[in-house]
């Protein structure tokens, strides 16, 4: 029984040490044994508790999209105006006691993972980069596909952009910051059948 107690105590302490090293900043131990810590932690014990730290996000990022619709009769393609997907989310969250993950997390985290898996020229870093591009297209098609094709035609291509607007300093602060929005415009992406999620159509 003492052996079992010792074994369980060691297992618990090793686990705790791994969790600690995973959430701690890069340090002497993780620089030498980071691989072992990662092997232990991923995939099931991943965690991030830097809640609003070291600083809270101080900008609103709006993800906007527009599309090019090819009419069924072979006429020339027509371009839609920009739709602010984030604003639509915002409207859904407004005065909502129980926002859905579809409204609060889906687009927000899709954009985060896009930014995290692409370089400054919007080129994907490997498989994850390509997957997040497809994820964004499916989100857009799921939300706007029907509207875009309401008057016939199919969605041929779509273009995303983000508009980053800083949150101004509090009124009591003398701080001055630029409130000019920053645009990031992605290339036009062709739309295929793989980009149409359940409940959407591209007809």
């Amino acid at each position: 029984m003492a052996t079992a107690a010792g074994g369980i105590a060691i297992a618990a302490l090793v686990h705790i040490a791994m969790m600690f090293l995973h959430v701690a900043p890069s340090n002497t131990v993780t620089k030498a044994h980071g691989e072992a810590v990662s092997d232990y932690v991923y995939p099931e014990y991943e965690q991030n508790w830097k809640l609003f730290a070291p600083n809270p996000l101080q900008q609103n990022i709006s993800v906007q999209v527009r599309a090019e619709i090819r009419p069924g009769d072979g006429g020339s393609a027509r371009r839609t105006g920009w739709t602010d997907l984030t604003a639509l989310d915002g409207r859904a969250i407004h005065h909502n006691l129980f926002p859905s993950h579809t409204q609060q997390n889906e687009l927000r985290r899709a954009w985060e993972s896009f930014v995290g898996s692409h370089d400054a020229q919007n080129r994907p870093n490997g498989v994850r980069g390509e997957l997040t591009e497809r994820y964004l297209r499916r989100i857009a098609m799921g939300r706007l596909g029907a509207e875009w094709t309401a008057h016939g035609g199919t969605v041929d291509r779509m273009e995303f952009r983000s508009v980053t607007t800083p949150v101004g300093p509090p009124p009591w602060s003398s701080e001055k910051i630029s409130d000019k929005p920053v645009y990031r415009v992605l290339p036009w992406w062709p739309v295929t059948v793989d980009d149409v999620p359940e409940g959407a159509s591209n007809q």
């Binding site: 991030n48 508790w49 830097k50 809640l51 609003f52 809270p56 997390n105 985060e112 993972s113």
Partner: peptide, 23 residues
């Protein structure tokens, strides 16, 4: 705080880099 918008796992992969923005 705590409203961990930051949170949520990256991709359960070690190269999840940048997954957590509000951070």
């Amino acid at each position: 705080d705590q409203g961990n918008p930051a949170g949520g796992p990256g991709a359960r992969t070690r190269e999840s880099g940048g997954g957590h923005t509000l951070v």
